[in-house]
């Protein structure tokens, strides 16, 4: 501290004071609950054990031994990987198309962004109606065309994919807008120069646009991972994990254990596992892909 002048010192204190409110919020609503959940995960705490009883890693062992956990983990993985892949690919594709100075691109932008603005609960209810077997919109169209109808949400085989479709539909417009912002920053001189050199459309995209977009892609990727691994809202409103846990995703499973069954120990253990898994994911991604991202456009 001796190295700092009074002025510097007061500036430093000021800076800390400015971040203090935000930090307090994080501390109370984010860090404290995480550590508390990890603490609780070592206890039995449920309607059977109204008083916490220390259980070591027993909760972890029991969860890993149960079939349902693996089913839910597999569902969550399927859901995340497919929504991330589809919504990023589709978002990027749409952004590139709209960026081609098409006529009425504003209309397309609004139309594609629109699902993002509909309250999720309302959207979920609309989709529930679309998915109703035999007389819902989808089956109505299919049978009108003389095609076989599907039971959509009422089948263990299709239910999860129905949720994926709604998730993609809801978010793809948002990712498209982010990509579009990135595309505006790709210098046209570079693309023009490439054209002069004789590069085709695919080459220009793959060698110039895509690498220059990498910081945007990376950002979309990270929020997508966090979003999809934590998604619960669609499942809660549309299926409650049904039928037969075919749409039970990790955060809904945590909700069930913690608040529906009041197995707080188990719920906290699952929360800790998810948090640690997410941290590891993000750390790995930052230290591998993150190092190769081009930031200065």
């Amino acid at each position: 501290m001796g190295l700092l002048s009074n002025r510097q010192r007061s500036n430093l204190i000021k800076s800390y004071l400015y971040i203090l409110p935000a930090f307090l919020f994080l501390l109370i609503f984010t860090y404290y609950p995480i550590f508390y959940a990890i603490f609780i995960s070592f206890f039995r705490w449920s309607t059977d054990y109204p008083q916490k009883v220390f259980a070591g890693v027993q909760n972890y062992v029991e969860i890993l031994k149960g079939d349902l956990f693996w089913k839910v983990a597999w569902n969550t993985l399927l859901y995340s990987v497919s929504t991330i892949f589809i919504s990023m690919a589709l978002g990027l594709f749409l952004a590139v198309q709209i960026n081609k100075k098409v006529r009425a691109s504003g209309v397309f932008k609004v139309a594609l962004f629109y699902p993002m603005m509909i309250p999720l609960a309302a959207a979920a209810l609309i989709w529930l109606w679309i998915y109703i077997p035999t007389y819902g919109l989808l089956d109505h169209l299919l049978s009108g065309l003389g095609l076989p109808t599907l039971p959509w949400l009422n089948s263990t085989e299709t239910a999860l994919w129905c949720i994926v479709a709604v998730g993609v539909w809801k978010h793809v417009g948002y990712y498209m807008i982010l990509f579009l912002a990135g595309l505006y920053n790709v210098p046209s001189e570079l693309l023009d120069a490439a054209t002069v050199e004789g590069a085709g459309g695919f080459h220009r995209f793959w060698r110039i646009t895509f690498p220059l977009l990498s910081s945007y892609t990376f950002f979309v990727f990270i929020i997508n991972i966090v979003d999809s691994l934590q998604s619960i809202d669609l499942v809660y409103i549309m299926t409650q994990g049904r039928p037969a846990d075919a749409t039970n995703l990790m955060v809904y499973y945590i909700y069930q254990q913690a608040f529906r069954y009041w197995n707080m120990g188990v719920g906290s253990t699952l929360t800790s596992m998810l948090t640690i898994f997410l941290l590891i994911c993000v750390a790995v991604i930052f230290s591998t892909i993150g190092r190769r991202i081009y930031y200065e456009v």
């Binding site: 077997p133 089956d139 299919l142 049978s143 076989p148």
Partner: peptide, 8 residues
């Protein structure tokens, strides 16, 4: 059932 075998 309808003509295409779907449940009516």
């Amino acid at each position: 059932r309808d003509g295409s075998g779907n449940v009516g």
